[in-house]
Design a binder for these strands. Sequence first.
DNA 1: CATGAATGAGCCTTCATTCAT
DNA 2: TATGAATGAAGGCTCATTCAT
Lengths: 213, 213, 213, 213
Amino acid sequence: MAEKEKIVVQTSVKDESLIEIRRRQIVSGAVNLFKEKGFHRATTREIAKAAGFSIGTLYEYIRTKEDVLYLLCDYIYDQVKQQLAEITSETGTVEELKEAIKQYFHLIDRMVDEFTIMYQETKSLSKEAMHYVFDKEHEMVHLFEKIIKNTSLPKNQVLTEKEIFLAANHIVVQGQAWAFRKWAFRKRYTIEDYINDQTKLFLSGIFHFHENS
Amino acid sequence: MAEKEKIVVQTSVKDESLIEIRRRQIVSGAVNLFKEKGFHRATTREIAKAAGFSIGTLYEYIRTKEDVLYLLCDYIYDQVKQQLAEITSETGTVEELKEAIKQYFHLIDRMVDEFTIMYQETKSLSKEAMHYVFDKEHEMVHLFEKIIKNTSLPKNQVLTEKEIFLAANHIVVQGQAWAFRKWAFRKRYTIEDYINDQTKLFLSGIFHFHENS
Amino acid sequence: MAEKEKIVVQTSVKDESLIEIRRRQIVSGAVNLFKEKGFHRATTREIAKAAGFSIGTLYEYIRTKEDVLYLLCDYIYDQVKQQLAEITSETGTVEELKEAIKQYFHLIDRMVDEFTIMYQETKSLSKEAMHYVFDKEHEMVHLFEKIIKNTSLPKNQVLTEKEIFLAANHIVVQGQAWAFRKWAFRKRYTIEDYINDQTKLFLSGIFHFHENS
Amino acid sequence: MAEKEKIVVQTSVKDESLIEIRRRQIVSGAVNLFKEKGFHRATTREIAKAAGFSIGTLYEYIRTKEDVLYLLCDYIYDQVKQQLAEITSETGTVEELKEAIKQYFHLIDRMVDEFTIMYQETKSLSKEAMHYVFDKEHEMVHLFEKIIKNTSLPKNQVLTEKEIFLAANHIVVQGQAWAFRKWAFRKRYTIEDYINDQTKLFLSGIFHFHENS
DNA sequence: CATGAATGAGCCTTCATTCAT
DNA sequence: TATGAATGAAGGCTCATTCAT
């Protein structure tokens, strides 16, 4: 979780604040571009153009094309983390859990493109970078694990660690599904409906987990 | 759903049965290759080699590199469909539904690599081919919709069409999750455990769907 | 002029009469094909198909793709030669010369496609084959040299060998021009008009050759 | 006829003057190469090498291989046009016509290779590019039409538009003949001789055009 | 003789990356 | 720092030719 984990994308530029600006430009240009053509089909020239400067300049801020994808994933997770940071479970009520799910699903809905790109292109990353991304995903699962653990369920429904893990994954996965199966859901569901039904299904699931054989 | 819908990958070879053989070779070679490097990083020469013949020959059986991916997706779905065809809901018991889920999850487990590739690379297909794949996915969702619809749930838990759709998607998505989140699940779950817990969560979910607000 | 000069296109087939038949098929298929796509753009598969048999069979009657072009040129010249053989200058009248020109121009008009192909693709031939073709062209020039030489011109207009050579070339070239500049001429000229005016221009030219400085 | 008609060969390089330089390099390299092997047999790598840079660079200045041929034709016609621009018929004397022919024939002699290539490979161009080249040819014919029209011929020999067209084509064609039939002419003619005799033949032709039936 | 599947050299083109200005 | 021209490895694909049946 420490910032130190961040895989540093090397630059030849010294000015730290300029680096930040340029990278923001790269990322926001890349999102639109990758959304349209995917990482592999997008050329570095196009990335540079989308970012608003020349390839020469692009390569002052990245070392390889893959860095762009990495930068993008990094940026998205930062956003996610930042926004999820506000979700906490303090009282342990079910309402709080519902709220967390809602926040998370809305977050995904707001960033559908970014998420879609991430889940599609992540596999193109180097093993090293991929692990970093996996870790981040694990953080997200973990966040929900904590919230679920903290939530007071009916007495006879106390979940084991493993079951909590499954439940947390469930939320994360169903959230992602909204992003990369939108072509299937959008015809029948608004995000609100989706949240509603998914939450109901999920809650009745964990509320009665141990009732069926 | 007619077989005629199949998007024909053109060939310059006339012998139909030979085409079948060669394509099977292409597909099984490609699975291993794509698993390792992904579709984009694999070269046509490598695909040919993995299939056991020269590029020249490869191109006697496909028109473009994308055809390989298409052939692969096609093959996988055919397998899936064929194996799921045996799953039917005749008595409408919950046991039957459980069995269907089990079959489906086992199927995915058996073809983890194939599924992973499919969900990762599908987006690289042409619009036309993508729609064909989407249709196939829809068939799968539909299969579960029918089974769920046919299953007798507690009286007060009758599901609407929309809810059935969600539930069917749920199964399909959680099945896929086993494939492309295996890195997360494998540490704690065997496929049997996974099936078990997922089924429990799902069933208690739909059995009590309308109990929570 | 002897048949011996013919560069033999080797075959692995023994039956002489079959060879003739197959080659005729090759040539007539190739004319249509080359007319449309040119020699380089036409594939051997297409040539075989146009000829009415398989590539395998095609290669029983030729050694390389170039042979097809060679066969084609050979055939065309044979046709030309055969048809021009009937043109002779026996009385030495101007009428006879006119008739020869007319015959030649009409011949070209009848075989525009063949001529066009020949003049366009001849340069793709090997040096050896090209020389054979050049020799054939020379024969044609020579034919007209003989006719012109034999024609009685006004006394003060007797032409030197060199001038006769030029005049003969003139006819050959202007004939070819009808074939490969048809896009320019066709708008304003019918073949009859063309023959008429070209003949007039030519005759008045050689009839008054030595009048201007 | 406006310069604007020029079919633009697209580039990814911005510096206009550099484009000019590189294209000149491409063209002059291509002339030698095509002279030797023809357009189809020459590879892009060879073209690049002949131009003095890498394929990568070559493709910064052209879009496809065909562009090289187009660039070449374009260049040649520019040269021709530029050099013929100096030829004008102001007084309408026969001497002026002779001079024009002389200039044109000399021009061809100077650029035999270029002309030969152009007339041989032009047919490989796309329809669009071919039309552009045809238009240029038409300009040349038209130039001579104007000159001939302006030339004062004997009173009873006034030529019709159609005859002038034929005569102009005559010059253009006989000029080309010097280029692509050089193997035939070179043995007996120097360019001066050729010009001399061709001019004589042509002039006596048009001076007496209407004397023969 | 006829067939057509197999082969692989080789072609055109792209594009990530570098480096002189 | 910024620029963009230059580079060349590498990729997708074609097609003339062969050879077993």
